[in-house]
Structure formats: structure tokens, C-alpha cells
């Protein structure tokens, strides 16, 4: 539903998320402005909806890219073993040794501000989880009869991996990716909060929170509302993830 709201943002709201209107600044919630306006006269409800687009899009795409890359590396490491496995797992260990957010923020700092840096930083740190999960699953699946049979039939490794291994090991990674999206949204919001996220004037929940923080005593809704949006998205995605997990387990 939230995704629907985000996509339909221009239809639901008549205000622009970026046009400034200082004379209408810091209005209290009313019928014209459902959640009031911020200090620059922008409608908070509008910015919230457009912000959902920005945060969700980055989170989905970054997790998708990490998922694909991490799974590919995990397959190669798990299936072939040997030095490929050693190299991949050392890399995974090293990246996991860094506190996730510390590495992301350091990479964003080095690459400079901007959406592209956020993508690179998240993907560079996030793929390791998928490699870790997939490799572990492959190591236990690889010894099962049907895989041994496929190898005995002389199928090429690529065919075995794609046709036989991936359908059997991907479940765990899909289930994990749901909570990973929530976590990635938190990361993007936190970057935005610290002023290292998506550059203004693009509406983004994290920067909305930090902008609202200075008006906390007089206009508490400015900082509160974006956080509630994140929590709702988190609950929604977690329930969705549980649903997917149950369904995949049944099959």
C-alpha cells in the first residue's frame, strides 16, 4: 500500500515537494496541509510521499544488486571451492569485520556526496551477506544425490548451478533480503539524517528528520512523522517477508 502511495504521489497531492514558499512556513496541520508545512513552506505530507519514492527506490535497487552479485559469488565459491572459495571467504570476513554503517559512511565520504556513492557504498558492503548465505547452502546441497547425478550426466557447471542448485538454495537469501531492505532503508535514512545522504532539495526521510529536529519544541511533528513512516514500512516489509518465508517453506 505504501508503495502504491509513493508511486501515485503526484496524483494524491497537489503541492510540489521542492518549491519553496517561505511565507507559508511552519504551518500547523490543517485541511490544506494534512501534516502542516516545514520551515521553507513545503507541504510535509507531499514530501513524505516523494521521500518514500526516493528511499524505497534506492533500498530496493541496492539490495537487488547486492543480492545478484552476492549470490553469484556465493555460487562460484560454494560450487568450485578451492582458491576461489578461499579468496571470496577472506573478502567476506574482512568486510563483515567492519561495522556495516562505519564502512558505508567511510565509502560515501571518500566517493563524495550523491546518490551514486550511496549505491556503491551499500552494494560494496551488503553483497557479503548473500555470498555467506548462498555458499553455506550450496555446500550442504552439493552432496545431495540429484546434484551428484547431474554432475555424473556430464552437465556443464553453469547448467548445474543455474538449473539445479540455485532453485534449491535461493530461499534463504530471498527471506533474508526482506529484512535487508528494511535495514538498508534505515541506513539510507541515517545517512540522510547525518547530512551525507541524497543531497537536498530532494525530499528524503532522514534529512526531513534532521531538519525537523531544530523545531522539536514548537513543531514536533516535523521530526516525528518521517520516523513513523519508516517504522510502518519496516512492519509492512517484515510481515511481507514472513509471508514469503512461510510460502516458500510450504513448497
Amino acid at each position: 500500500m505504501i508503495i502504491g502511495l509513493a508511486l501515485a504521489a503526484p496524483l494524491i497531492t497537489s503541492y510540489s515537494p521542492t518549491v519553496l514558499n517561505p511565507s507559508q512556513g511552519l504551518l500547523a496541520p490543517s485541511l490544506h496541509h494534512l501534516l502542516g508545512t516545514d520551515e521553507l513552506g513545503r507541504d510535509v505530507w507531499t514530501r513524505l510521499l516523494y521521500g518514500a519514492r526516493v528511499d524505497l527506490e534506492i533500498a530496493f535497487l541496492a539490495v537487488l544488486a547486492s543480492f545478484v552479485f552476492g549470490t553469484a559469488v556465493g555460487c562460484v565459491a560454494g560450487f568450485f571451492g578451492g582458491w576461489a572459495d578461499v579468496v571470496a571467504m577472506r573478502a567476506v570476513d574482512v568486510i563483515l569485520a567492519f561495522p556495516f554503517f562505519v564502512l558505508v559512511i567511510a565509502l560515501v565520504f571518500i566517493l563524495g556526496p550523491g546518490t551514486k556513492s550511496i549505491y556503491i557504498a551499500i552494494i560494496a558492503t551488503d553483497w557479503v551477506s548473500y555470498t555467506w548465505i548462498i555458499r553455506k547452502e550450496i555446500l550442504s546441497t552439493k552432496r545431495l544425490e540429484f546434484i551428484l547425478a547431474a554432475s555424473a550426466l556430464g552437465y556443464r557447471p553453469l547448467r548445474i548451478i543455474i538449473r539445479h542448485l540455485i532453485p534449491n538454495v535461493i530461499t534463504q537469501a530471498i527471506v533474508y533480503s526482506m529484512s535487508d531492505i528494511v535495514f538498508t532503508i534505515l541506513t539510507i535514512v541515517t545517512l540522510g539524517f547525518l547530512g551525507l545522504g541524497v543531497p537536498p532539495p530532494t525530499p528524503e526521510w532522514g534529512s526531513m528528520m534532521s531538519d525537523g529536529q531544530q523545531f522539536i519544541t514548537s513543531h514536533w511533528q516535523l521530526a516525528t512523522v518521517p520516523g513513523i513512516a519508516v517504522v510502518i514500512i519496516g512492519i509492512g516489509l517484515s510481515l511481507f517477508g514472513d509471508g514469503i518465508a512461510d510460502r516458500l517453506r510450504v513448497e
Binding site: 520516523g227 517504522v231 510502518i232 517484515s238
Partner: peptide, 22 residues
Amino acid sequence: PLIGMGMPSAWIAIMLILLMGL
């Protein structure tokens, strides 16, 4: 856990400041 996992710590901090501090 369902609710707690999705809360940005920046937001928790602001809410605590708002409620218990201010």
C-alpha cells in the same frame, strides 16, 4: 521485534529527547 527492528536510531533518539528530556 517486528516494530523495534524498523526504528531508525536517530528517530528513537529524537523521540526520547522530546519525551524524557524536553
